[in-house]
Amino acid sequence: MTGRNEGRQTAAAVASPGPRTQPGVAAGGIAQASAVRLPSTLRVGLSRGVVELKQFFRQKDAVVFTFAFPAFIALMLGLIFDEPVHGIADVRISQVFVAGMIAYGIVSTAFISMGVGIAVDREDGTLKRLRGTPVPAGAYFIGKIVLVGVSTVAGIVLLLAVGVVLFDLKLPTDPARWLTLGWLLALSVVSCTLLGIAASALARSARSAPAVLNLPAIALQFVSGIFVHNDALPDGMITVASFFPVKWMGQGFRSVFLPDSMMVQEAAGSWEPGRTALVLGAWCVAGLVLCLLTFRWVERDSR
């Protein structure tokens, strides 16, 4: 009995993968392959960038909180802690805060504004509308990159202006330091942007997104020595911070804007540019992978 049943099942299994009906039966073939060319991804992307910037800078609260906030915090901390760094006469603590605060500026304009921005776009219908037009996904991301690029550079300029005007921060004259600033900015912005896109998937709604993203971001500012001086941090916190990008960004920016005599104040007693590049590079890769795994065009539960 059993044997015969098994035999029947096998026969059925062999028979079933026959000719499958194609889900989409093209009724009319490709009608009217339009002779007119679609606008290029780059062109649409740059036009999206303009629109993103307009929308961002017209929202006063967004401008204040993501863009001017780091400069504001640097101002506050700088006014409170303005004495010379212990044992190093030519550097003031305010200058250390301003240099490190660039890391927070990038986290704010790249990670937070990207993560919140995408959650908002998903909820208010921006992404859905774009999906119904011939806009390629690449153009949407070019638009976001333009937004992040412009707001990050503007935010850093504002921050450095505060540092130079109020706290006597010296801009570097050595081209090697500007070169460091260049790669550091690139790696920081790319990793934070990618992580922001990935983190947008964590937010259940546009309303909850700022809370979901700000919590880890602010926590990292503290343990990474951006909001507090390195000296004050327990060893455990420094160890935890070493796994995340913010510590390395802060250390990197201090290496650009502070004299080499400040090296001894870092956890390792040196600027560690190689390790910084390595960690940030690894976060870029991790961010990209997370993005590809988690990015959704539409809200949860709606497909």
Binding site: Q32, A33, S34, L38, V51, K54, Q55, R58, Q59, D121, D124, G125, T126, K128, R129, G132, T133, P134, V135, P136
Partner: peptide, 20 residues
């Protein structure tokens, strides 16, 4: 994309582009 260029879609609910 070319197919989407031939469609027009009016969504049921959208509140995007509020600042434009």
């Amino acid at each position: 994309r070319r197919w989407r260029a031939r469609l027009g879609i009016v969504l049921q609910t959208a509140t995007d582009a509020a600042e434009l």
